[in-house]
Write a protein that binds this DNA or RNA. Structure first.
Ligand SMILES: [Mn+2]
Ligand SMILES: [Mn+2]
Ligand SMILES: [Zn+2]
Ligand SMILES: [Zn+2]
Lengths: 152, 152
DNA sequence: TAGCGTAATGAGAACCGCTTGCAACACAAA
DNA sequence: TTTGTGTTGCAAGCGGTTCTCATTACGCTA
């Protein structure tokens, strides 16, 4: 008789990515990626926010490990790292439907909206090409004040 | 007879801007702005770089004063502050011929090229408008690898 | 399923860019 | 010159991130 635990379940893309590189799956790594997958795309969290969200829901992962894991997840292209300025870098689930979006940030309250724009993508491509650079990524940050912060 | 020192020379825009705000002109402030004016626009210096350039040319200005002065010059719109990522913010002379340019940065050696693109400016305007935000500024940073860093 | 080699973690120190508190200093108005 | 207050230099402090190192634990192998 085959016990339930002996079923060989498909390793997740995360797990197989790790394995193929001599790295290991750990509960901490699972928790960090799951957090992003549960809250979905369009949310931009700082390392501290990831830490406190996990802590609040009873999971204990040290801040050092969170930083290490975020770096790893960015390198593995599960997450995207954003430099929106003001209080630390932020991370978001890399959504394959909206890979190249940009950000509109309220400098007062931090509210962040996303938008897509092909001209911006093309502008980045064109600039890199003109100077003979190999393009990696281009990011447009629009700093502004949101309606709520405007009238008060 | 009028002695040479009694000629009242026109105060610079910098000096009159300061005066009109109850602030004072100081040798330190002159030195920092002069450095930027001498090297011209299109050069992006970190606070540390400003400090070492002044130190090398025999001028002694403390790093704290340099940070304070850079902040002041940004507020007075003589300088522009850039967040190109990697090792501290950078400052450049605000050139009135190229006020709204963008940056192409080599992530290996730091080489930075400037380019202008109206579609990008319009994309920022449009995004702010769509969400009812009041636009402050928008900056496109293109991260790439320069030709020199590519072949080695 | 126990043993083992090595990757990963947690805790805290260190680091980096930047800001701030404070006493000494120096512009500029009278 | 005197005086008031803005500015400076120094050193301590701070927030975000990385590093060091002893301990833990993943997962391969027998
Ligand atoms: Mn986003
Ligand atoms: Mn520039
Ligand atoms: Zn707001
Ligand atoms: Zn380069």
């Amino acid at each position: 008789m085959i016990s339930p635990s002996s079923y060989r379940t498909h390793p997740s893309p995360f797990e197989s990515g790790l394995r193929s590189d001599g790295k290991r799956m750990t509960p901490q790594r699972k928790k960090v990626l799951s957090l992003f997958e549960e809250i979905g795309s369009g949310i931009h969290l700082s390392a501290e926010e990831v830490h406190s969200k996990l802590t609040i829901s009873g999971e204990k992962v040290s801040l050092a490990t969170i930083y290490r894991t975020l770096r790893l997840l960015v390198k593995m292209t599960f997450l995207n790292e954003l430099d929106l300025s003001e209080g630390g870098n932020r991370f978001e689930l890399l959504s394959h439907d909206h890979p190249d979006h940009h950000h509109l940030i309220c400098i007062r309250c931090g509210r962040t909206e996303e938008f897509e724009n092909n001209e911006v993508i093309n502008a980045g491509k064109a600039a890199a090409e003109n100077f003979g650079f190999k393009l990696l990524e281009s990011s447009l940050n629009v700093r502004a004040v949101c309606p709520m912060c405007l009238n008060k």
